[in-house]
């Protein structure tokens, strides 16, 4: 077994340390070492987006980043999207719009969509579809997911005083 490396990082705003083998991905570290199982493994080669996380402000597939690369990084996972008991507008919109069926892809969609809204608070339908094209959903046909993201974007709009 390869020697394990000590990594110091920040996950969902909390200082975090862990040991990992050089071959372990961020997805493995999250799920197997840190007990954060919200990110899902659908393909383990970057094609389905179920393991999406936000690394230093950029959405990435955590199966394609090594755990040792988290040294000094800031990571946001699905577990860090809600503010305590208060759901993020995206999470609320997914519930209200019935934008999930089996729910396995949902964490990845919400994380990717959050990165989208962080960079562009008012995307149009085409931009939402383009941005989410790296996340596969097999249940919904994407209709209600796209509607939920557009609704959350509207909800996040700051009313003019």
């Amino acid at each position: 077994m390869a020697r394990r490396t000590h990594v110091t990082t920040s996950i969902n705003g909390l200082p975090t340390e862990f040991l990992c083998e050089p071959r372990q991905s961020v997805l493995e570290v999250l799920r197997d070492e840190l007990g954060l199982t919200g990110a899902k493994e659908g393909c383990n080669n970057g094609n389905c987006g179920a393991c999406a996380v936000i690394l230093n402000g950029r959405v990435v597939n955590s199966c394609c980043v090594l755990g040792v690369e988290l040294e000094g990084a800031e990571l946001t996972t699905i577990e860090g999207i809600a503010d305590g008991e208060k759901l993020h507008p995206l999470q609320q919109a997914f519930l209200e719009e019935a934008a999930l069926q089996c729910g396995i892809c949902t964490p990845g969609f919400i994380v990717s969509a959050k990165a989208l809204l962080d960079s562009d608070p008012h995307p149009d339908e085409h931009k939402v579809r383009f941005w989410l094209a790296g996340n596969l959903c097999r249940c919904t046909g994407y209709d209600k997911i796209v509607r939920a993201v557009l609704k959350a974007a509207d909800a996040a709009e700051t009313p003019v005083p």
């Binding site: 799920r31 007990g35 954060l36 199982t37 919200g38 990110a39 899902k40 493994e41 996972t77 699905i78 577990e79 999207i81 809600a82 759901l87 999470q91 997914f94 519930l95 209200e96 019935a98 999930l100 729910g103 396995i104 949902t106 964490p107 919400i110």
Partner: peptide, 22 residues
């Protein structure tokens, strides 16, 4: 069209799927 009972767990990453068992 009410919100589903298992919805909150699924949008927050808390729902336990088979691979999540420890």
């Amino acid at each position: 069209r009410p919100v589903r009972p298992d919805g909150v767990e699924k949008v927050t990453g808390k729902a336990q799927y088979g691979a999540d068992i420890r």
